[in-house]
Write a protein that binds this DNA or RNA. Sequence first.
DNA 1: CGATCATGCTGGCTATTGAACGACGCAACG
DNA 2: CGTTGCGTCGTTCAATAGCCAGCATGATCG
Lengths: 255, 255
Amino acid sequence: MLAIERRNVILTKLSADGKVLVADLAKEFGVTDETIRRDLEKLNRDGLARKTYGGAVKSENLNIDIPFNVRKQTNVESKRAIAALVGDMIRDGDYIMLDASTTALYVIKNILHKQNITLITNSIEILLELASKSGWNVLSTGGMLKEGGLSLVGYQAEKMIAGFHVDLAICSCKGIDEVNGVTDSNERDAEVKKAFFKSANRRVLVVDSSKFDKVSFVKVCGVAEVDTIVTEKRPGDVWVDRLKQNNVELIYENI
Amino acid sequence: MLAIERRNVILTKLSADGKVLVADLAKEFGVTDETIRRDLEKLNRDGLARKTYGGAVKSENLNIDIPFNVRKQTNVESKRAIAALVGDMIRDGDYIMLDASTTALYVIKNILHKQNITLITNSIEILLELASKSGWNVLSTGGMLKEGGLSLVGYQAEKMIAGFHVDLAICSCKGIDEVNGVTDSNERDAEVKKAFFKSANRRVLVVDSSKFDKVSFVKVCGVAEVDTIVTEKRPGDVWVDRLKQNNVELIYENI
DNA sequence: CGATCATGCTGGCTATTGAACGACGCAACG
DNA sequence: CGTTGCGTCGTTCAATAGCCAGCATGATCG
C-alpha cells in the first residue's frame, strides 16, 4: 500500500467519523504508531486534519478543500440511494437543471441511459461526466469559478439560468430547518440555487437525512417553496407532518 | 513492446485500479524500474498521473474521454515549447482569454505562478486545472457542451465573451494559409474564437509549425487580423516575409 | 551517417518506515 | 492538591526501498 493511499483512507475516515485514533489506524493498516503519527502530522501540516492527543479530528478549516476523491466518498450509500430515486423522476426528453453537488453527480450517472435530455448545470464535474455523451443537450451556466471547488457561481451564471425555463430543478443543500427553511453554507452557491428554483416548474430538493434540523449560513428558500424533497430514509413524524402541511411531496427509499 | 504502448497500458491500469506500483509494472513488462519511473514521470508531466513514492495514483482528471487524451499526447514537446513562449508574454495582473486547446492547457500550467490573473475560457480542462488555484479570477464562458470534447460553444458562450474586453486573447487553430487565412475544423469552435479575438486588444495565435500551409474547414479570420503568432520553430522564409508584410509579430523558439 | 530516442546500469542520495527511549499529558486515586 | 501509572509523543538511529543524474549502448529515423 502506498503512503498516499493510506493518507487518503485516513482522510476519508476522518471525514466520515469526524475523528481517528492512532492506535486503531496502526492496527488497521498493519504499520506502527509512528507511521500513523507521521501521516497525521503531514495532514495536519496540510490543513486537512487537526492532530490531538491520541489521534486527530476533522479540520474546521473551511478554506482548505478536502480532495475531491475523498469528499466524493462520504455518505456514498445515501447519495446513491437518493440519486436512484431522483433518476426515476426523470423521463426521456425532459428539461432539467442540476446544481454542483456530489448527489447531482450520482443522479447523472443514474440517468445516462435516458434519451434526449436537455440539461443546465453549474457543475464542472457533471460536464466532465457528460463530455463523451451524445444525444443530449448539455448547457453550462458559465460564471466565476468558485475557489477550491468545481462549481460556477456569480452574476453571469445567475443571468444565464434566468434566461431558461425547465421542467425540473434539482438542488441539494447543507441544512433544512423549520424556522430558517433551506440553507446553504455559501452565499454564492445559495444565489445560484435560488436562480435554479426560480426557473423551474418543479423544485426538487435532495438531502440526506442528516440534514434535517440543521441550519447552515445562507437561506435559499422556505420549506414551502420546495415541491419535492428526496431523501434516503423516512424522516421523523414531525417532518413528515410538516412537509404534508406545507404541501411538499416527500420521497424516500422503501426498504 | 513500444514505449507508448506500455504507457497506454499503464494508463489503463491506473484508471482501473486507481494506482500502480513501480516494482509491479517493471516485473510485468520485463523492464527495469528506471524505465517505469521514466514512464510515470512523463505521464505525470502530461498531467495524466500523479507520481508518488513507490508508484503513481490516478490523476483526478483522468476520467476524460480517450480521444482527447490521445490528442493531448501528440506533439507534446512543440506544445510545451510554445506554451513557454506564450507564458513569457503574460504579466501579473493581466486580463486574458484562452480557448479550449491543448496548447492553452499547457500555457496555464506555465503561468500558474503568476499573480492576480483574470482569465476567461471556454475550456473545461482549464477550469479543472484551476479549481484549486487561489488568487485568480477565473470565468467560464458557459454555453453548450460540445459533443465528444471539453469545450463550451454556441450563442451563450459568444454572448458572454462579447460582454468583456481583455488585454490578450490566445487561440489555436487547425490551419493557417495564405489564401484562406486562419481556419478551424469546426464551425462552433471557430465562432467562439472569432468572439475571443473580437474582445481583445492583442490577438495571439498559437500554432505548431505543422499547421502552416494547411487549410481546414471554417475561416476564423485573415492572417493580417492576428497581432502575434507563436510557434515552436522558425517557419520558412516565405512565411517570415508574409507575416512581416502583414504586420504580424512572429515569435518562435531560439534554439 | 549523425541525431534522436529508449533503455539499462551505476553510484550516490533521499524518503519512508520501524525500533528504542526518555519526556510528557492525562486521569484516577489517595 | 500532589502522586502515580499508563498511554502517547517526539526524537534519534538504522535499515530498506525507492529515487535521480549521468553515462553507455543499441535501435530507429531522416
